[in-house]
């Protein structure tokens, strides 16, 4: 390392190695779609007491925009909120909805918990996996099809136990999903 890292004159703290702008080790800088940064700034205004509270909203926005939370995303959000990247990374690894790797374009989440299980959600999940040709699950329980089109996973209770079994496909919620209905839905999202 030829360039010594900068020292903040106010705090005398050495700037972290991966402070913004994002290091090239993580690939080319992303291009933000129009309005992305403005939307981030708007979200931050919801938390006049502490910018840190905007962590989850910015992570949601990043994932909705780019599909997953990349190391760049973690560093960018951290810099935006005057935090260290670890403050953001520890959220990504804690909250089940955030993912660090791209997954299929059509994400099928089948509720696994008791009422849905009583109504046949295990068979339903099997059915989706079979129809989507997904391989065995990864470490996070997500089964992806080889061409990367589908990702099928079990999730815990999504709060509609009276219309079990229920699923989500991407952000859409579907209830009382029979095997026949499952096939219809797959056709719709194709």
């Amino acid at each position: 390392m030829s360039n010594p890292r900068a020292v903040d004159p106010a705090t005398q703290l050495v700037e972290p190695e991966h402070a913004f702008p994002v290091s090239e080790a993580h690939g080319a800088l992303v291009t933000f779609p129009t309005g992305f940064e403005a939307k981030c700034d708007e979200l931050i205004t919801h938390y006049p007491v502490s910018k840190r509270s905007a962590s989850l909203p910015l992570l949601h926005l990043w994932q909705e925009t780019f599909g997953h939370i990349s190391p760049q995303g973690i560093e960018w959000i951290a810099a935006k909120l005057d935090l260290q990247p670890i403050n953001i990374l520890e959220l990504v690894t804690f909250y089940p909805m955030f993912r660090q790797h791209p997954i299929g374009r059509i994400q099928i989440k089948v509720c696994r918990t008791l009422s849905c299980a009583l109504a046949g959600s295990y068979k339903l999940c099997d059915h989706f996996r079979e129809r989507c040709g997904t391989a065995t699950s990864d470490a996070h329980g997500i089964a992806s099809s080889p061409e990367g089109k589908y990702a099928v996973e079990f999730v815990e209770c999504i709060a509609s136990c009276g219309t079990a079994p229920v699923i989500m496909i991407n952000d859409d919620f579907h209830e009382a999903v029979t095997l026949q209905r499952a096939d219809e839905l797959l056709g719709k999202y194709d």
Partner: peptide, 10 residues
């Protein structure tokens, strides 16, 4: 009043 979304943690 603002809406704040969680991220899947019970």
């Amino acid at each position: 009043i603002y809406v704040h979304r969680g991220a899947g943690a019970y």
